[in-house]
Design a protein around this nucleic acid. Structure first.
Length: 807
RNA sequence: GCCCGGGUGGCGAAAUUGGUAGACGCAAGGGACUUAAAAUCCCUCGGAAGUUAAAUUCCAUGCCGGUUCGAUUCCGGCCCCGGGCACCA
């Protein structure tokens, strides 16, 4: 073998070998268990950044490890090719979005290939191709037929100058990013998918997703936000009208001192007709962008509408206020306000001098100064007529029954989750397969006419979608009446494409490959993408198209790549390009550093000197192999006989297998950074073993080392595996098993503590009994000194670990 | 504002179920080799007290408190940083 480590040559040779043997092309295989390893598909922005590199490296380590465990592993990749950035780039560079997108894909594929991932490229998917999105259109039609896709009015950010809808990202400080115009909220008719129909199942199945991080499950649970409560009607005084509110705290209903309604609520609009300040307030609310985070940070403000209502239980008169913290899209667009028992209502009441009426007292403490702070816990009812003295559960049920009997409301399960708006008023997206006919109304495109193809190669000259003016697309005939009709010009949200792409990778053999065994991607997708994908999978299941209830068995959410403490991004100018690093150090160094620098789920702090360190390790590994080539290859040729080891050799083997045991456990729990630590320790250990008399141990240790590194630095391992004449292709080397007999030892070292502080160490025989251990502990010099003349109260023994003497 | 994470040496981190805090690596300092540099190899490396050197002792896992023989780990409260909040993907 070479004496000098030349990563570029090693990389090239390994890749050539994998290409020639079609090593990563996958088929059904009945003799091996399957393993579908999936990384989130990239948006083709033009450049592979370190976040991508990290994502696919983690995925690749898992894929290659699973292969070594004997699995039939499939790892695909594709392109999430529709989306806003292509339109922006196209406008800026006077290109067609399609042109920009395809060019980027070509560039990015080259870089990804340089990193040597075990990807089956024959399965590559590009979501902007008609042969991809035709199935999406088909699915939409099925959902439409079932009532799972429907149209309704909903609010968007409207740029009054450019006359376009803006994404939240395009609204900067309340103004359109191009025009600078003050953004308005505008209601337009849009397509929705009824994810709420699956809310209960999406929630229930989270309990079964034990291969997912608990934090992601919690986030999804909270996002769905199931709550049980009451819809309650308050009659508006002097009008034949009711305001319906939803509450999870019917026990506090006697404490309602006002109602708050959303600025878009019909009653608020009514009030604005005769009240100038309300009119102005509604105008002001009209200029807040639709993002919830934005709405929530606006200072609380409200106005009395001049209307009052009757509390259906207490009969008290309550004023109706319009307030900017109530959202029309949540529940009924109106809430009952109980200042005594809700923090936000309390602050609002203080701000506008509204009545605060206590109706709940603490269970264990009768004294609560409601003038100082709201009491928001559950407790016992007071000042609540016939319901006084009941606790929360009793009051909930009694009030619910009362309300139902009096026809003033009903029990209601409410979800925070809202239906998924999939309409985008954009060009660069998959067309929604609908035709609008003046006579027949909304008509779905017949399946035989799919796909509805988006015209490509269109240059954008202004921010409007060209689909309206493109006669060849826009104008059509009605499938029902044959008359003139026009096509829907809204396109799908790109999250629709990413909700099912993992099936397209295995379109013909999905019954074999699905579900995905391991999914890897950024934590930023913890809720939306992962919830939409789960939803669509369940819809497909109900159509009989896929098996199982959940698409992703195990999930790993990787952390971000940071430099100097902040996210690597072009705008910050702190990016590091994977191409340059690969050119300088080779793929394995980049992979090794990425895996070693931090555990996959945590953010990774980029460090140039850390990369140098990774490179240095590979050089040492290579140098060790070169220096021991003869020892290892000659041992390789010998027929293996059971070895008789000296005490010293037993100790070395023990050290090697302890390291392996650690690495195996870490590999299983995907704590990949410490697998690299283990490999480094192992190399350090092998350095200390004189090779002349220990060929068998060097051989064993080094083969274990190569196996540990194989998933992480496959190129250099491929080279060394071959040069040192180990058996077969390194890709299919068997993952090493711990030799339990090597771990046995005659003596144990125990820590001796006095009152929890370490005071000494003792060595005892493996079979030492409790009495012997106690005696040995006390006999230890520094332990004895620490005890001094104190009286021993008790001794705690933790087997094989420690002794704690309590004095 | 709401939901979810994170905070350990100069730095990235480790400590698998409550049991030796800092493995492994980076940086730094010292030394060897070299005409020199790079590369490589060896040694030291949380802080403070102590000493010629050591032994040894104390402090230390964001802050405050609690549970425990024992807390980076569990509980309560707070501070700071990050992710998400439905049209960035």
């Amino acid at each position: 073998m070479d004496k000098i480590f030349q990563p570029q040559m090693i990389d090239e040779a390994a890749k050539k070998h994998w290409d020639e043997t079609r090593a990563f092309e996958t088929k059904e295989n009945t003799t091996k268990p399957k393993f579908y390893c999936l990384s989130m598909l990239p948006y083709p922005s033009g450049q592979i950044h370190m976040g991508h590199a990290r994502n696919y490296t983690i995925g690749d380590v898992i894929a290659r490890y699973q292969r070594m465990l004997g699995k039939n592993v499939m790892q695909p990749l594709g392109w999430d090719a529709f989306g806003l950035p292509a339109e922006n780039a196209a406008l800026k560079n006077k290109l067609a979005p399609s042109e920009w997108t395809y060019k980027n894909i070509e560039q990015m594929r080259v870089t990804i290939k340089q990193l040597g991932f075990a990807i089956d490229w024959s399965r590559e998917v590009t979501t902007c191709r008609p042969e991809y999105y035709r199935f999406e259109q088909q699915l939409f039609l099925k959902m439409y037929a079932k009532g799972l896709a429907y149209k309704k009015k909903s609010v968007v950010n409207w740029d009054p100058v450019d006359q376009t809808v803006l994404a939240n990202e395009q609204v900067v400080d309340g103004c359109g990013w191009r025009s600078g115009a003050l953004v308005e909220r505008k209601e337009i008719s849009q397509w929705f998918l009824k994810i709420t129909a699956y809310a209960d199942e999406l929630l229930a199945c989270l309990d079964k997703l034990t291969g997912w991080p608990e934090q992601v499950r919690t986030m999804q649970r909270n996002w769905i936000g199931r709550s049980e409560g009451l819809n309650l009607n308050f009659s508006v005084i002097g009008r034949d009208e009711k305001v319906t509110i939803f509450t999870t705290r019917p026990d506090t209903v006697f404490g309602v001192t006002f109602l708050a309604i959303a600025p878009e609520h019909p009653l608020a609009l009514e009030a604005s007709k005769s009240n100038e300040s309300i009119f102005k307030f509604l105008q002001k609310c009209h200029n807040v962008k639709v993002a919830e985070a934005e709405v929530a940070t606006v200072a609380t403000e409200g106005y009395y509408t001049g209307f009052d209502a009757i509390n259906p239980l207490s009969g008290e008169k309550v004023s109706i206020w319009v307030a900017n913290f109530v959202l029309m899209e949540y529940g009924t667009g109106a809430v009952m306000s109980v200042p005594a028992h809700d923090t936000r209502d309390y602050e609002f009441a203080k701000q506008y001098n509204l009545r605060i009426k206590q109706v709940i007292k603490p269970i264990d403490n009768d004294l609560w100064d409601i003038n100082k702070i709201a009491f928001t816990d559950k407790g016992v009812l007071i000042n609540s007529g016939e319901f006084s003295n009941l606790n929360f559960d009793q009051a909930f049920n009694a009030i619910a029954e009362h309300v139902i009997r009096a026809k003033q409301g009903e029990r209601k399960v409410h979800y925070r989750l809202r239906d998924w708006g999939v309409s985008r008023q954009r060009y660069w997206g998959a067309p929604i397969p609908i035709i609008n006919c003046e006579k027949c109304g909304v008509v779905p495109v017949p399946e035989r006419d799919l796909p509805v193809v988006l015209p490509e190669g269109i240059k954008l000259t202004d921010p409007h979608s060209p689909l309206h003016t493109l006669k060849s697309f826009f104008e059509t005939t009605c499938p029902k009446c044959g008359g003139f009709a026009t096509r829907e010009t809204d396109t799908f949200d790109t999250f629709v494409e990413s909700s099912w792409y993992y099936i397209m990778y295995c379109f013909h053999d999905q019954k074999y490959w699905m579900p995905v065994d391991q999914y890897i991607g950024g934590i930023e997708h913890a809720v939306m993408h992962l919830l939409y994908a789960r939803f669509i999978y369940k819809v497909l299941r109900d159509e009989g198209l896929v098996k199982g209830d959940e698409p992703f068995t195990r999930l790993l959410t990787q952390g971000m790549v940071l430099k100097d403490g902040s996210k690597m991004s072009k705008s910050k100018g702190n990016t590091v390009s994977p191409e340059e690093l690969v050119a300088k150090y080779g793929a394995d160094t980049v992979r090794l550093f990425t895996i070693f620098a931090s555990p996959p789920e945590q953010s990774l702090e980029w460090s140039d000197s850390g990369v140098e360190g990774a490179y240095r390790f590979l050089k040492k590994l290579f140098a060790f192999a070169a220096a021991h080539e003869e020892v290892i290859t000659s041992h390789n040729k010998l027929s293996k006989k059971p070895e008789i080891f000296t005490k010293e050799q037993q100790q070395w083997r023990r050290n090697i297998h302890i390291i392996l045991q650690q690495a195996n456990a870490d590999m299983e729990r995907l704590q990949l950074n410490t697998v690299v630590s283990a490999a480094m320790k192992l190399l350090n250990e092998l350095h200390d073993i004189p090779s002349a008399t220990n060929e068998a141990i060097i051989y064993e240790g080094f083969s274990i080392l190569l196996c540990l590194l194989n998933p992480i630095t496959p190129h250099v391992v491929h080279y060394l595996w071959h040069e040192l004449q180990f058996f077969g292709d390194a890709l299919d080397a068997k993952w090493p098993q711990v030799d339990l007999s090597a771990l046995k030892q005659d003596f144990f070292e125990l820590i001796v503590q006095v009152n929890g502080k370490v005071r000494g160490k003792i060595t005892v025989q493996a079979d030492a009994d409790e009495k012997a251990i106690r005696e040995a502990s006390i006999a230890n010099d520094s332990v004895a000194r620490a005890i001094g003349s104190a009286v021993i109260k008790k001794i705690i023994l933790v087997p094989k670990k420690l002794v704690n003497i309590v004095v």
